[in-house]
Simulated assay, not measured.
Amino acid sequence: MSELNEHIFDPQLRDYESQIIDFFIKEGEIRNRGKKAQLIYAYLLIHRQLTQNQLAELSNLSKGYISSALSSMQNIQLINRKMIPGTHTYKYSFVNDNNFFGFRESSKLVQYYNNFERVVWSEIKKLENLKCEEKSQKRFLITRMKDLIRWTQAVTKIICEQEGYKNPNADKYPNLLNTQLYNSNNELEFFDYEPNLVEFEKNFIDIILSMDNTFRKDPILILEGFFLTRKILSQQKIEELSQYSRATISKSISKMLKMGEIQKIPKSNALISGYKAYIMPNVTEVQLLMQISTHEQILTFQPAIKKIIVELKTNKKKLDRLNGYTEIQDITSKLEEYFSHHEQKLKITRKICHEIKDIQILTH
């Protein structure tokens, strides 16, 4: 098999490849990832290493887009490239495809969330010492920050229970999973912060976003930050805080509504008269609901992948000599582990939902 067509699987295996690619595209939709980016991820995961020309032939994407996407993936150290000897052509591959599947080292994830929790507690102390005319505004912002910590504690507990780890932060800080943060009677509470709180808020959002080494100032991330601290935002307030165009804001808001991160406040509610308004009522609840929904949607594709695995085993003698068999077998084995991972995580997440006092999440 020459290098010119080694990436083209035999016809009997292309149907399996197409089904797996389709899964990754739909999985990307669930996670709000773009179809083009998902195609590149999927083909690299299946084929292990590809040139730009091979990616273009498989995906039908433009070489310009592929070049830009690969460059971005290199910048965040997701992929690497290696020159083919005797040529000026590079082959691209994942540094560790486990990162894409979410099988990152659990100890590192726990370390990240522990550090995140430490930083937010530290910011809360700064806020407590900040001079503020409106004490109710300060209390509200502290509650929102504690809600973020509570989500961090929830996700850390999920990881530790799944992997059998002890949480290093378990005895360092108050357990907010057992604390009622919100009064349900004040669901539509709204504050327009005084100037010193606005300054603190912007610095805080920059701090929590910059903790992720893949951070880019994506509009959705910025808006998520302001919804985190404000709970309720009007269209006008979003423009004022973010300085983004109306078109950019509308696009971001549409995605956040689709993902279930925020809800639209009915026009009949006169809380913010004359403007479209949106609410992120409870950070922990929103994140847990999104996580449960993501697990459930991804698991709907499990039967189709299991069917491919059975057919590969049943027809092994016919298929194992064909180009692409090893790659298809390898990716379906990873997907089998991936689905098992989601099943376990879903079970633990539902269990933890019942431990949190002031949220009501309906679980199956």
Rank of each mutant, 00 (worst) to 15 (best):
M256A: 03
S93K: 15
K357D: 01
E27S: 12
V310S: 14
T214M: 03
K36A: 08
S59W: 10
Y65R: 06
D218A: 10
V110H: 02
T314Q: 12
K108S: 05
D171W: 11
E29H: 15
D206R: 15
Y92W: 09
Q302T: 10
P174Q: 09
Q235F: 15
E201S: 11
D15N: 12
T300Q: 14
Y92S: 01
N114C: 14
Q243A: 09
S93T: 11
K125A: 02
I66Y: 06
P11A: 06
Y92N: 03
E296L: 11
L61R: 07
R150V: 01
V310W: 13
N178I: 05
L181N: 08
T179R: 14
Q302K: 15
K157Y: 04
S122Y: 13
A42F: 03
N186D: 12
R216P: 00
K131R: 13
Q180R: 11
E239K: 10
N115C: 09
L319G: 09
I305C: 01
C132N: 15
L362R: 11
I348Q: 05
Y182S: 08
F190N: 06
N167D: 15
I149S: 04
K306Y: 07
A69W: 07
L312W: 12
Q12H: 10
Q302Y: 14
L209A: 01
Q297R: 14
Y41K: 04
S268P: 00
I208R: 13
D358A: 04
E327M: 05
N114S: 14
D358Q: 05
V95A: 05
Y165H: 15
L241A: 01
S71F: 14
A170M: 07
S18Q: 11
E17M: 08
M83R: 11
T143D: 01
P195H: 13
Q291V: 00
L288E: 02
I25F: 03
L335E: 09
L319W: 13
Y325E: 01
C132V: 15
N175D: 15
A56L: 01
F140I: 02
L109E: 10
I207T: 05
P195G: 10
N80M: 11
I46L: 07
A42Q: 02
Y165V: 04
N315S: 14
L130D: 06
F227A: 03
G86Y: 15
K138A: 00
G260Y: 12
T284S: 05
P195F: 06
K313F: 07
L223D: 02
N185L: 11
S72R: 15
S62L: 00
F116V: 05
L346A: 03
S250Q: 09
K267Q: 08
S72F: 13
K334G: 02
G86W: 13
S2N: 11
S122C: 04
L319H: 13
L312M: 08
E17W: 12
R48A: 04
A270V: 01
H7I: 04
T156Q: 03
L127E: 00
V110S: 03
C160S: 12
K91S: 09
H341N: 13
E187T: 10
V286W: 02
